[in-house]
Simulated scan of single mutants.
Amino acid sequence: MTKRLFVLFGLMICAGAVAAEPLVDGDVEAGKTRSAQCAACHGPQGNMESAQFPKLAGQGAPYIYEQLKLFKSGERQNAIMAGQAAGLSDEDMKNLAVYYAAQQTRPGAADVSTAPAGAILYHAGDAENGVPACSGCHGPSGLGNEAAKFPRLSGQSPQYIATQLKAYRSGDRSGYRNATIMNGVAENLSDDDIQALASYVAGLGPATGDKKGGGHGALMQHAGGPAGAAAGQAMTGGDAESEASPEDVEASEQQSQDADAAAKQEAGAAAGDEAASTDDGADDKEADAGEDDGAASEANDNAQ
Rank of each mutant, 00 (worst) to 15 (best):
G184Y: 08
D292F: 00
A167N: 09
Q159G: 15
A117I: 00
R169G: 10
A124M: 12
C38G: 09
A15I: 05
E286V: 08
V249Y: 12
A162E: 11
A303D: 04
A17T: 01
C134V: 12
F53N: 07
Y200G: 02
F6W: 05
P116D: 00
Y160S: 03
G125L: 09
D279A: 14
S154Q: 07
M1Y: 06
A167C: 02
G10C: 13
E286H: 05
S135C: 11
Q84I: 14
N95D: 14
D192A: 15
M235L: 11
V249F: 13
K212H: 06
A196V: 03
L121M: 04
D92R: 08
R106T: 02
S170D: 10
I161E: 01
D292W: 00
I120V: 15
K285E: 07
P22R: 01
S89A: 11
D273Q: 14
N188E: 08
A269G: 10
Q77D: 13
C134H: 12
S252E: 04
G203A: 10
L88H: 09
K149R: 13
L121T: 02
A207L: 06
C14H: 00
P246H: 11
I181Y: 14
P158S: 03
A198C: 02
A261Q: 15
E187K: 15
D111G: 06
L96D: 07
D258R: 14
L204F: 00
E128F: 01
K166C: 11
D288T: 10
V201Y: 03
A61I: 04
S199L: 06
G139P: 05
A244W: 02
S141T: 10
M235G: 01
K94M: 10
P107K: 10
E21P: 00
T180D: 10
E266W: 03
G281A: 15
T33I: 15
G203I: 11
A167I: 03
A299F: 07
L8N: 07
Q304H: 05
G87Q: 06
A271Q: 06
Q255G: 02
H216P: 01
D90W: 07
M48P: 00
T33C: 03
L70C: 05
A133H: 01
I64K: 01
H123S: 12
A39T: 15
G155H: 01
N183D: 11
S190T: 15
G205A: 14
S35C: 11
A198I: 04
Q59R: 12
P158N: 09
A276G: 13
R4W: 03
K149L: 05
S297T: 05
G272W: 06
E187M: 15
A261R: 15
A127V: 13
A276Q: 08
A79F: 13
S73F: 03
E253G: 06
S242F: 04
A267C: 06
S113D: 14
Q37F: 04
G139Q: 08
G58N: 09
A110K: 06
Y168H: 13
